[in-house]
Amino acid sequence: MNDDLVASLDNIGLSYDQGAHFILRNVTLSLRRGEFVALLGPSGVGKSTLLRVVMGLTVPLEGAVHEVSAAPDPRRRKNALVFQDARLIPWRSVAANVAFGLEGLALTRQEKQDRIESALRLVGLTAEADRWPRKLSGGQRQRVGVARALTVDPDLLLMDEPFGALDPITRHTLQDELLKIWEQTHKTILFVTHDIEEALKLATRIVVLAGAPAKIAGCLNVTAEMKEAESVPFKQAVLQLRSMIAGVSVNTAR
C-alpha cells in the first residue's frame, strides 16, 4: 500500500526558539491518496504550524516531510494551502487572485484561463471574477482561496480552518460544497479544524493533535453511521474524540 501514500510526516519536532520549547514533538502522520483527513485540535496547539511544515514554509528542527510524488511536474504544484484568513491579494481581482498560483507553471495562456474558469465554476464564483476582494463577503473570500488552491492541481490540498470565521449557515453551505469538490476532484485533503462536528461531517479519517508539545493523540476512521448527526455512533465518536483531545492535556499536566 506504500505507493498509495501522498505524503508522510516522520517524527516532526518543531520549536520557534531553537529547541528551548517545542510546539510539535514526534508528530508522525501518513496521508493516503484520495483520503479526506481532518486534523482536529484545540486552539493554539500547533495546527497551522504543522501545515506550514508540510508546505515547506517552516523547517522543522527534527524529523522530515516526505512527499511521495512521481517525477516533478512543471504543470502542477505538489501542495496548496487554503489559509485560515483567506489571505487574498487586495490589489488583484478575484480571477487574478486565482491565477496567482499558476504564474510560473509551464502552462499556455489558454490553459491557465481554462483552469481559472473551471476553478471559479467549481466554487460558484464565475460571476464575481472581475470583482475586488474587498467587495466580497467572508464566504466568497474563502471560496476564492479554495479556487486558488485548486487551480495548481495539487497532490495534497491543505486547508487551515477555512470556514472557522464564517457564520453557521455559510459554513454548512461551504462544507457541502467542499464535499462535492472532493468527490469531483479526488484530491487528498488535510483539513484543519477545532470543530469535532465539522471533522466528523467532512473527513474519512480524523487525526487528533493535542498536548504540549503537540503530538498525534489519536486517530479515528469515520464510518458512514458516524456521519449521521445525533445517531449513537456519532455521539460515541464525539465522546471518543473529546477524550483524545483532553487525555493528552491531562497527561502533560501531571
Binding site: M55, L57, R77, A80, L81, F83, D85, R87, I89, W91, F100, G101, E103, G104, R148, V152
Partner: peptide, 26 residues
C-alpha cells in the same frame, strides 16, 4: 509579511517574484 508567506506557499521566490508580485504593489 503574511503576503510573502502566501507567495512562498504558491512557489514564488522571495526576490524577483516577491518584488513584482508583492513588494511593489503592496
Amino acid at each position: 509579511p503574511e503576503l510573502y508567506e502566501l507567495a512562498a506557499a504558491f512557489g514564488h521566490g522571495r526576490f524577483l517574484a516577491g518584488l513584482f508580485k508583492i513588494t511593489l504593489p503592496a
